[in-house]
Design a protein around this nucleic acid. Structure first.
Lengths: 189, 189
DNA sequence: CCTACCGATCGGTAGG
DNA sequence: CCTACCGATCGGTAGG
């Protein structure tokens, strides 16, 4: 309860601008009583950040285990990000925006986790380039363009609106894998 | 000088976690002396946010003025975001991450500007879909996938590294317009 | 541009 | 779980 409420406040006001008194009031406690449940403010942030990092890491591990073509791994990765984001949209926002308020040694640990995650995605992209199924780009550019595109889904996708999660997955994957443009030889105009 | 320094601090620590004393020290003043140059802390944030909003708005206006095919407008838009981000990478970070700390009525004004900006990009995408040069997606999905992909370039692009701005523009545009995948009929494997 | 200072609020603790 | 309270720090002002 405290964690979920904190995630919502962190999302709405940011970590630094959320006081322990804000959080206490939101869960109907006095500020001092919070310390029977947690050790300090940063504990909460730490939990949110590393919980979500684990969700992504486990999802990626699952993708790597299966023997898929690079294209299908990227597709699965897009699905993973959309699923994680839509399942717990509040805490994922805090995770994405507020991790930099972690202090050492947790900050470095978090950055290392992220670096490892990105390196593994880069390996997928590189293998696709090598076997000729992906176009030849700088893997750095392809990596971050794709990650950026899918990292912020929670920011604009309104669950329950006219677009289903399935449509969302298919269209984002379609756009990133085959592009916005209609190929010239099949074009109407 | 104050604005540039503040943008850097906001980027590194966040708006809320940056104190006027931090800023004063960074420009070799006492905190109270800052108020001879600015009216208050939020003044600085406001300036950063609306300055950058204007840069994007003017860039988009330029793109709209020229009679380009939708595909080339999207290409120009990608170039615009990359150019803006690489020209002033510090203040663009503060702009992207800290605008929500604006208070009313500026917060609403800022959100309205952004909404208008996005609506105009959506119009470009819709026109491309209508004339058959873009694949048929929900314009909502295409819009935000593309915007997300290009909004965070500053976050990962290291100027001066092995990749030039020109290569960056070409590859990001290539990826978003024609996709990561090699078309099946030209595939090697 | 500074010193001196304001009331408010911060994260957190003592003690019950 | 609470009341009471800590020292530190906040954005900002008065006055020169």
């Amino acid at each position: 309860m405290i964690l979920e409420t904190a995630a919502r406040l962190f999302r709405d006001k940011g970590y630094s601008a959320t006081s322990m008194r804000d959080l206490a009031q939101a869960v109907n406690l006095k500020a001092s009583s919070l310390y029977n449940h947690i050790n300090g403010k940063e504990d909460i942030l730490r939990e949110i950040c590393f919980n979500n990092a684990r969700r992504f890491r486990e999802g990626l591990q699952e993708i790597e285990k299966n023997d898929l073509r690079p294209e299908d791994k990227v597709r699965a990765l897009i699905r993973l990000h959309i699923r994680v984001a839509t399942e717990d949209i509040t805490s994922i926002t805090a995770f994405n925006d507020e991790w930099r308020h972690l202090t050492e040694p947790y900050l470095s640990e978090f950055i290392d986790l992220r670096r490892d995650y990105e390196a593994r995605i880069r390996a997928i992209i590189k293998s696709g380039i090598q076997e000729g199924s992906f176009k030849v780009y700088h893997s750095h550019i392809a990596l971050y363009t794709i990650i950026s595109a899918i990292r912020w889904v929670y920011d604009w996708y309104q669950a329950g609106k006219s677009i289903s999660v399935r449509q969302l997955e298919d269209e984002v994957a379609g756009l990133l894998l085959t592009g916005l443009n209609v190929p010239v030889n099949t074009q109407i105009g």
